[in-house]
Simulated assay, not measured.
Amino acid sequence: MAAATAMTVLQPEDRIKSGEQLLKFLFVYPGFYIVGRFLGHASLRKTLPFGYLFLAMFLVFQVVVEKLHVPIIFQQIDFGIGALHGTFKERNWLSSYFFLLSYWLLLRTSGERRFIPFFLLNGGVTVLTLNKTSMIACGLVFLLRSRTPLVAKFAAVFVGASLYIAVLGNEFTQEKINVKLEEERGLAFQSSIELIEKNPLGYGFGFVEAYFAKGSERIRGLGLGTNSVFAVPLDMAIIAGVFGVAFWLVFFCGVGLGFNTIITLLPIAVVTLLNPLHQSEMYYLFIGIFVSTSLKAKFVAVPLSAIRRKFGREWTSEAKRI
């Protein structure tokens, strides 16, 4: 983040809320990540204080709050009409909340049956929120974590994809795809690449919102009120060039933290290509939790009794020390 700070201070670009962005990336987001690391480590030998029953009840609560328009805790929004957002600011936040908590539960359990409540919950959330990205992450979790034969895995993914298209088919019409490519994400991707080519070192914080707010070519979803483009690596490259991409690789992909961590974070890393998750404190918190869980898993996966049977008592004291 030192490179992003330097670009912000030294380059005379128009900026919006650059100070707020600096504060978040230097202190708030790392703080949530550190808290997540602590929570993940502290919870390893304890039972999590929630389960799928709690998540199902909380989802019902979200539906009731929105249907009744409960004052204060529910606020109507002018986009995503017809999609559930409940007490959350928008539907993506609600969908992310349930995915992250259910993923934590799945990492703490074993067996193939654990995928049943995982998919039932996230499938229900997808139908209610019409969010198209969480189920992609769920499919990756299944492919990476399930021990079923490879053919059965792909058969299950095919069935899931068919249901996904059947439920969200209206979101994939030719007209909507053309809008995405020509007026939204496709155009945003093209503009982002052009910016990165002009300045590979990055433009610093607060630049994205100011640039697209005054641009001659309007891009849907960008401008005033939006401080990042849709993909995390693209946005970080605009902010800090190659150092920003390194930030994404370490925090969201787990590069440098071992293979187990990379596998654990891979579903989240893929979703960052579709959504600007680097602007969410919730994701830094849960990424910290998942990193602690994946790092510790290498040491607690084999019980001491199994070590004693295989290698003898002299190995047991060493295993205890580790």
Rank of each mutant, 00 (worst) to 15 (best):
280 S>G: 07
182 E>P: 00
113 R>H: 12
195 L>H: 09
30 P>N: 11
213 A>P: 07
314 E>I: 06
22 L>K: 06
281 E>P: 04
51 G>W: 03
199 N>L: 06
18 S>H: 12
107 L>G: 05
273 L>G: 05
142 F>Y: 10
91 R>F: 09
211 Y>I: 01
260 N>D: 13
265 L>F: 05
165 I>F: 10
297 A>W: 06
167 V>R: 00
277 L>E: 02
15 R>M: 14
239 I>K: 07
151 V>N: 08
202 G>C: 08
22 L>H: 10
232 V>H: 00
28 V>K: 10
44 L>N: 12
175 E>Y: 13
254 G>N: 05
147 R>S: 14
12 P>S: 13
245 V>T: 02
75 Q>E: 11
60 V>R: 02
224 L>I: 14
34 I>S: 07
65 V>R: 04
205 F>C: 05
25 F>D: 06
30 P>G: 08
196 I>H: 10
225 G>E: 05
251 F>L: 13
275 N>M: 14
157 V>P: 01
309 R>Q: 15
213 A>T: 15
259 F>H: 13
35 V>H: 06
173 T>C: 14
299 F>C: 04
120 L>T: 05
295 L>P: 04
124 G>S: 15
83 A>C: 11
178 N>L: 08
262 I>E: 01
142 F>K: 07
170 N>P: 08
97 Y>E: 01
182 E>S: 14
56 A>S: 11
219 I>G: 03
165 I>M: 07
72 I>M: 11
215 G>E: 15
126 T>A: 10
45 R>M: 11
131 N>Q: 09
51 G>A: 01
242 V>N: 12
1 M>W: 04
27 F>S: 12
197 E>L: 15
136 I>R: 14
303 P>E: 06
70 V>R: 07
217 E>N: 02
185 R>S: 02
97 Y>S: 03
99 F>H: 01
2 A>M: 13
161 A>Y: 12
70 V>T: 12
175 E>R: 14
251 F>V: 15
206 G>Q: 06
91 R>E: 06
152 A>N: 11
72 I>Q: 12
195 L>M: 15
264 T>E: 03
186 G>T: 05
248 W>V: 10
305 S>G: 10
224 L>F: 15
297 A>D: 12
237 A>L: 09
212 F>S: 02
66 E>R: 04
23 L>M: 14
155 A>C: 13
35 V>L: 09
52 Y>K: 09
207 F>R: 02
312 G>W: 00
297 A>I: 08
304 L>I: 11
3 A>D: 08
62 Q>P: 04
40 G>A: 07
133 T>I: 12
194 E>P: 05
103 Y>A: 06
119 F>K: 00
150 L>T: 14
11 Q>A: 10
240 A>T: 04
145 R>P: 03
1 M>P: 01
299 F>I: 11
237 A>G: 12
53 L>M: 04
225 G>C: 07
63 V>D: 04
216 S>F: 12
128 L>M: 14
121 L>W: 04
259 F>S: 12
90 E>M: 12
160 G>C: 00
